[in-house]
Design a protein around this nucleic acid. Structure first.
Length: 477
RNA sequence: GUGGUUUUAGCUCAGUUGGUUAGAGCGCCUGAUUGUGGUUCAGGAGGUCGUCGGUUCGAGCCCGAUACUCCACCCCA
């Protein structure tokens, strides 16, 4: 019985046109990265689970794709469970089930027996892992870009896939704010070259921690930032409600409400912040950092740069600047890029005191936006061939095949219609379907006069050429 | 992980209270036109109705399960 083929939820095949469009985006991004001196890096699709777990919070751990161990992965688990606590070989994190049944085991504690590898969840953690492992070979500051797939066991919806590509540029080993400005310029350059107008949002985590400290709720920084981050989406009332649910009192909420209503202008926001948490050290350094970044940026951005004090971003390792990019138009409201400064990402792998800052582009979402706004160049939907060689008989086909070899030597992409047919219409239809702009036509007349007819399928103009003239004509048009 | 939603021809979609042989537009193939395409006209091919099971004399339609799509939470590129 033939099975109906399918692919896993949240994954996609990419046809020729889609691949060409994706590579076009990748090319533009790579160009922008390399223009600022970033070097390429690739890491394995799978990492050890110990590298990945605990880096993205409990939510993130649940979204990791785990890879089943090879061999009889159950055998060891069952043995450990039967021997019970206290055995000398016992893994200290492992707890046997009180019933002695495998079915009653704690899933989280048992996981290491079943899976020790997982698919990477982002490119930042593997990068940090790479930096730590290769610290002696790397010249700091180290600037790398990386464009690879990542996987999340999320439930798919619009703009959200289980396999998608991130394109990251990070700098580690320097706390210079020059790099914040450089990365913002990369965002600006890359989206300009794609013809996509965007809003680049900027904030500094230190403002948020200053706010939390001024409220006397430094321990609630994460819940506060998560709630604040939703302001655009759920509105002021709901944010305040969520804050109350997290256990903040009315005085604290009042202060946060004033924060949420601050003006978006640079001067206005800073003045307002001063009155809300001006005493906090984090505010002062945050303000100084922001001012320095703006100074380094200069005035030459093509896109809108917006200070958004409510921008928090989920990843908990950000400590300074935070970036997020949204398309200025189109239906996709979620971010198409994000990043920030993390003071101590490599610390967890045993290399403390190394500061990094990075940005990420979401290839798949950028694709969706460009597609919706029809911003891809039409040539990306066409065959690479510029010429389809058409013919009517065996002699014409050989004649035209030989010409094709000459065209290719001259760097002109071309191909020969494979079948012998008197129907030129069918051959021209094939060229049209593939978006090939020229038809080279040769029958008895052309063979006898050692010439070629070349038809421009866009304009309909047809003229006769000798081989040399043909090559020149194609190179010039 | 929770809740909802979608699935019928290559594509976009109709399909009445459950009733004979499941339709349309576009696309595709053939011919009018044996060496000139995108127009027109005529004809034609193409369906396990997502999958499995159930109810029924009878299921595209009703019921159950499952997968996929999309959406809202959660979170995020």
């Amino acid at each position: 019985m033939a099975q109906k083929p399918s692919i896993p939820q949240g994954t996609r095949d990419f046809g020729p046109k889609e691949v060409q469009k994706r590579k076009y985006i990748l090319g533009k991004l790579e160009q922008a990265f390399r223009l600022s001196g970033f070097m390429p890096l690739e890491t394995p699709s799978m990492e050890n689970l110990t590298t990945l777990t605990g880096k993205y919070g409990d939510e993130g751990d649940q979204l990791l794709f785990k890879i089943l161990n090879s061999g009889d992965y159950f055998k060891k688990l069952i043995e450990y469970n039967q021997r019970g606590l206290g055995h000398e070989e016992m893994d200290p994190t492992f707890l046997p089930s009180s019933s002695g049944k495998v079915a009653d085991l704690d899933a989280k504690r048992s996981l290491p027996f079943l899976a020790e590898k997982g698919l990477r969840y982002d490119l930042t953690v593997p990068f940090a892992r790479y930096v730590v492992m290769n610290r002696n070979q790397i010249s700091f500051p180290f600037k790398r870009y990386q464009m690879q797939a990542v996987w999340r066991a999320d439930r798919p919806q619009k703009g959200r896939y289980r396999e998608f590509w991130q394109c990251d540029a990070d700098v580690v080993g320097s706390d210079s704010l020059l790099y914040e400005a450089e990365l913002i310029h990369i965002y600006d350059d890359a989206f300009s070259s794609l013809g996509l107008p965007v809003i680049i949002k900027l904030n500094n985590r230190k403002f948020l921690s200053a706010l939390a400290k001024a409220c006397g709720a430094a321990n609630l920084l994460t819940p506060i930032t998560i709630a604040i981050d939703k302001l655009d989406k759920i509105g002021l009332e709901m944010v305040l409600k969520e804050l109350a649910e997290k256990g903040l009192n009315s005085e604290q909420i009042n202060r946060i409400e004033r924060f949420l209503q601050l003006p978006k202008t640079m001067d206005g926001a800073m003045a307002g912040l001063e009155s809300i948490c001006g005493e906090e050290e984090d505010f002062k350094t945050g303000k100084a950092e922001l001012e320095a970044v703006l100074k380094f940026l200069g005035p030459n951005l093509n896109n809108t740069l917006e200070l958004d004090l409510c921008l928090a971003r989920g990843l908990s390792y950000y400590t300074g600047a935070i970036f997020e990019v949204q398309a200025a138009t189109g239906s996709l409201k979620s971010s198409i890029g994000g990043g920030g400064r993390y003071d101590n990402l490599t610390g967890i792998f045993g290399l403390p005191g190394v500061s990094g800052v990075g940005i990420s582009f979401g290839l798949d979402r950028i694709y969706d936006v460009l597609e919706e706004l029809k911003l891809f160049p039409p040539s990306l939907s066409a065959s690479p061939s510029r010429v389809l060689a058409c013919h009517f008989d065996e002699a014409g086909r050989s004649y035209v095949l030989n010409a094709c070899y000459q065209l290719r030597k001259a760097g002109i992409a071309c191909e020969v219609y494979p079948d012998i047919t008197r129907k030129i219409g069918k051959q021209l239809d094939y060229a049209n379907a593939l978006g090939i702009p020229f038809a080279l036509i040769a029958g008895e007349n052309e063979v006898n006069s050692s010439s070629f007819s070349l038809k421009n399928l866009v304009t309909g103009v047809q003229s006769s050429f000798k081989l040399e003239e043909l090559i020149h004509h194609l190179l010039e048009n």
